[in-house]
Computed example of a mutant assay.
Amino acid sequence: MIKLPTVSLAAIGYEKFLWKNITELLKTGMLIIGIYYCRKIYKKLDDLQKKIDKGEQDKYDFQKKFEYSLDKIKATIDKGEQDKYKIKQEKDNIAQEKDNIALEKELNKEIEQLKKEIERKKAQFKSAWREIPLYADWRKEEFQTVKLTLDAATAHPALFLSEEGRIVTWQEPCQELPSSPERFVSIPCVLGQLYVSSGRYFWEVEVQDAHSWDLGVCRNNVARTGRVTMSPQNGFRVIRLYDGEYWGLTSPETSLTLKEKPCRVGVFLDYEAGDVSFYNMTDESHIYTFSKQAFYGGLRPLFRLWSSDSGPLVIVQVEENTTML
């Protein structure tokens, strides 16, 4: 029980201070103390509430940041998946492109093989047709048949030409002929009047008992003096009969085997195709064809005799055909 300091109060002039008032004052002091402590508690509670509110805000902010981070991670994952899908597509495209390239190479290889096979079949077919009878006669329909004569200005002095210019024979002694840059001097040749720079032409030459001769075509500007070698490289595409043997004057020469000795030789000239073919018109079989090589410049028919016992060469006057294919 609290003892009130009544003496001290009286000493200071509060003699009439009643106990009731003291009690009320005490109550008032307790109330003040209570209010003080309550205010402190309220303040602490308020601080705590603020901390709680701040914690809730931090929690909310953290959750937002977490959700944002999750969204970014998800977006990154999604982008990664998209990139992965694109990379897969690119890999698939590259693989498909490789397959296409491999397939294209394979197809090109097959096409090349087919082309070679077609060329081989064509060559076989062409060779087979050349070997059968009547092929030369059938080919004449494709070519222009010409009334060919010999060009006296080109004749070697040892060669004698008939008046109509269709027969060439060996003559001894040699004739005295005027000098001309067109005349053959080193080899006993004469050219035909025909000058070919395009188209297809055919003529026949009767060889009969002649046993040494050259027949074919040559460029108009071949060498006529000095050492002359008859070969395609030098402008000649010629076949030869010499000492009972037949030759194609290639480089080196090609030996030819004929089933039957020709009495007439047909010459087929296809300028655009680069083709010169020879046929035995006796049995209409193929003798020889020079491999296709482009012609350069004009071409002339060529005739050659070797000696006085060579025998004559006679240009056959066949019916002229102006059909051109």
Rank of each mutant, 00 (worst) to 15 (best):
Y68D: 12
Y68I: 10
S69H: 11
S69K: 10
L70Y: 00
L70Q: 11
D71S: 14
K72F: 10
I73T: 12
K74Y: 12
A75C: 07
A75P: 08
A75W: 09
I77P: 00
E81R: 07
K84F: 06
K84A: 08
K84V: 07
K86S: 11
K86R: 13
K86N: 15
I87M: 10
K88R: 07
K88I: 04
K88N: 00
K88H: 04
Q89F: 10
E90K: 11
K91I: 10
K91V: 10
D92W: 12
D92Y: 09
D92A: 15
N93L: 05
N93G: 00
I94P: 00
I94G: 00
A95E: 12
A95V: 06
A95F: 03
Q96D: 08
Q96I: 08
Q96T: 03
E97G: 02
K98H: 07
D99G: 01
N100K: 05
I101D: 07
A102G: 04
A102L: 13
A102R: 13
A102H: 07
L103E: 11
L103W: 04
E104T: 09
E104A: 15
N108D: 13
N108T: 01
E110Q: 11
I111F: 08
I111R: 12
E112A: 13
E112R: 02
L114F: 06
K115N: 14
K115I: 09
K116P: 03
K116L: 13
E117P: 01
E117L: 10
E117Q: 10
I118S: 09
E119K: 06
R120Y: 04
R120H: 05
K121N: 02
K121W: 06
K121I: 07
K122G: 04
K122E: 12
A123I: 05
Q124P: 00
Q124L: 15
F125C: 08
K126L: 09
K126W: 06
A128R: 02
W129M: 14
R130M: 15
R130K: 11
I132H: 14
P133Q: 08
P133N: 09
P133T: 00
Y135T: 14
D137P: 00
W138F: 10
R139W: 01
R139C: 06
R139Y: 00
K140N: 02
K140H: 01
E141C: 06
E142W: 05
E142D: 12
E142I: 02
E142A: 08
F143R: 02
Q144Y: 00
T145A: 05
T145K: 04
V146N: 00
V146W: 07
T149V: 11
L150A: 06
D151H: 09
A153S: 11
A155E: 04
A155Q: 01
H156K: 03
P157L: 06
P157M: 03
A158W: 05
A158F: 06
L159Y: 00
L159W: 03
F160C: 07
F160T: 09
L161F: 10
S162C: 01
E163S: 13
E164H: 12
E164T: 05
E164W: 05
G165E: 15
G165L: 10
G165M: 08
